[in-house]
Design a protein around this nucleic acid. Structure first.
Lengths: 209, 209
DNA sequence: GACTGTGAAGCCATTCACAGCT
DNA sequence: AGCTGTGAATGGCTTCACAGTC
């Protein structure tokens, strides 16, 4: 157990490994090898072992990994042994889809507030959470101890929303708007850009004509 | 103009550059330097020049790049000078959000069909496209000459849908389900995994406690 | 014999730094 | 003087290959 900088790709794979292990757990599998995990998630076995090595030694040579054990270790590493509170800003189609997406809940994420500026949306409910006006951002973040902000507003509004989230003390932002957001160094920002993803496919289709 | 393998990260950035250039075009800016683009999208100027160098020489030394010119070159490289037809499989929240998301259309993407297995959804319309039964997959792909399949079904159904898309001749798939899909080597697959993205944030919050 | 953990090698992407144009 | 285009250097991630352990 040492190391400072963990590759982002490693973290993403750990998330995938953990999901695969959960599946094995469900099937009552007791032990698994790096090779099995590798084939299960589509990477090399050396990759699996290297990824795990960033965080310690979890296996037994000649045997493999105890599924339950490794699973709970990974959940702990990923910070999924605790609850994270989420605020969604933007209750349009994408925001609603995110709010209603199951599969976050059982991984420790809890949507605490959904905000919008549209009068027509405010007052409606999404999965038991009422859509409230944007002005409540600072209050809601603080009273619910929100950890993660999800931005699903149009590009023009995204930086403004970001600044408000940062001002409210949020340290992690998931941005779905197609904009380049500026955040302080201590705030983690992840962008999920649907257009970029489609355009990479377009490129591949066009390039390998 | 040479080179075989273009880094995926480069392609993603080209998509972002093109969007930035479009904005400049709108502001009637005639010329731009790699440094301005770099600051506009948050990368280094050397990165911008290297990315472009994979595809040719588009600038003038001592001057910079002609905005209109570079923009249209990038659109061409990205394959956005032509129309791409899309089929969405899964008309749940995420599929609907995708279908109703504006901003693809003006970049050359056209949603031709939306399929689902849920009787309650079939027959409804999303942005003028009727939701139809999954059985029509093969037909619709062929009659509309669909290029890209978007998968927004639950994880358990994803591989089955993938196989059907591949069998119908589709060469590019955008997968939103949290599953590891297997596709032939000549099919491009991109995964957008919402859980993984959230969990990377979780990791960062937990790790840099 | 089987499988992990890991230094070393290999590979790929980014940054540097400067020659080459305008 | 200003800015591009690019070989060389750097840095980082992945794969190799094998010693270590059960």
């Amino acid at each position: 157990m040492k190391i400072y900088k963990i590759p982002e790709a490693t973290v993403m794979r750990l998330s995938v490994y953990s999901r695969y292990l959960f599946q094995l757990l469900d099937e009552d599998v007791k032990t698994v090898s790096s090779d099995e995990v590798a084939r299960g998630v589509g990477v090399s076995s050396a990759q699996v072992r290297k990824d795990l090595a960033y965080f310690g030694e979890f296996g037994t040579r000649g045997v493999g990994y105890n599924v339950e054990d490794l699973y709970s270790q990974l959940m702990k590493i990923l910070g999924l042994n605790q609850r994270w509170n989420i605020i969604i800003v933007g209750a349009g189609k994408l925001g609603s889809a995110f709010a209603l997406y199951q599969g976050f809940i059982d991984r420790g994420f809890s949507i605490k507030a959904i905000l919008d500026i549209d009068e027509n949306r405010i007052g409606q409910e999404l999965d038991g959470v009422e859509i409230e006006p944007l002005e409540l951002l600072n209050n809601r973040v603080k009273e619910h101890k929100v950890d993660i902000g999800v931005i699903t507003v149009p590009a023009v509004a995204a930086q403004d929303v970001t600044d408000k989230l940062v001002a409210a003390g949020i340290k992690a932002i998931l941005n779905f708007s197609p904009s380049i957001l500026k955040v302080p160094a201590d705030v983690v920002l992840r962008n999920v850009d649907l257009s970029v993803n489609l355009e990479v496919l377009s490129f591949n289709l066009a390039f390998n004509n």
